[in-house]
């Protein structure tokens, strides 16, 4: 889901770059406040590469197939690193594969990255309430579904709204109807994205709980028996 270069007017592209600059600055500021900001760089970059590759998988929705965006999952797993990771992925796509474009990079990054940051904030809220926890797989799945579907819905809405409302010569009623049709047409993909995000979240909760943002579980025997750690 990219807007190609040449379609948007300059004002929209510049506004996209302004928003992207602001969100990148804010994300980097929050990253620098972390105890060891550099420790997260390889993790965020490699997970971003993983997400980039995962988005190539064709998911069957008979009679066709779709690619997933997974910006909600990126937000939940990468936290404040999500926006820079998405920006880098989009920059790479624009330069190496001509998907999207360098002029529309700001708009595309805002469209996909801003909902990812919202996904991170919602996930933080869910963690505080205990809904996103390895022990509670059902609620983790529900949180995954809600965040996955909501973030994609936001991106879809922005994607079509930016394209349709950029042409001021089009009749406003026609613009509104086109937006409605486009978003309703995307509903099955939004649901599939939500379901798959939920499934990946429950999978990670079972296999690698510390990826969900929760601390890794301590070794049971050391906690249960209070055994001292032996040195040497």
């Amino acid at each position: 889901m990219h807007i190609a270069d040449g379609i948007l007017p300059l004002a929209v592209s510049v506004a996209g770059y302004a928003t992207t600059s602001g969100l990148t600055w804010f994300s980097l500021r929050r990253i620098r406040q972390l105890p060891d900001p550099q420790a997260g760089v390889p993790r965020a970059a490699l997970l971003a590469a993983g997400f980039f590759v995962v988005s190539w998988i064709h998911i069957p929705i008979p009679p066709t197939s779709v690619h997933l965006l997974l910006n909600g999952l990126i937000g939940m797993l990468l936290g404040w690193y999500a926006f820079p990771a998405i920006l880098i992925g989009l920059f790479f796509q624009a330069v190496m594969f001509q998907h999207g474009g360098l002029v529309s990079l700001g708009v595309n990054a805002t469209m996909i990255g801003a909902p990812a940051l919202l996904g991170h904030l919602l996930a933080q809220l869910a963690r505080q309430r205990g809904w996103l926890a390895p022990q509670r797989q059902f609620s983790t799945g529900v949180v995954g579904f809600v965040i996955g579907a909501t973030t994609l819905a936001m991106s879809v809405l922005m994607f079509f709204a930016v394209q349709i409302f950029s042409f001021d010569q089009i009749d406003p009623t026609l613009q509104r109807n086109a937006l409605l049709v486009a978003v309703v047409g995307y509903l099955p993909v939004i649901l599939i994205e939500g379901v798959l995000t939920a499934m990946v979240m429950t999978f990670l909760a079972r296999v690698q709980p510390d990826l969900l943002g929760a601390p890794a579980a301590p070794l049971p025997e050391l906690v249960a028996h209070g055994a001292p750690v032996q040195e040497g």
Partner: peptide
């Protein structure tokens, strides 16, 4: 931080 992420 960004250049490192891009290179990784």
């Amino acid at each position: 931080l960004l250049t490192d992420m891009i290179l990784f």
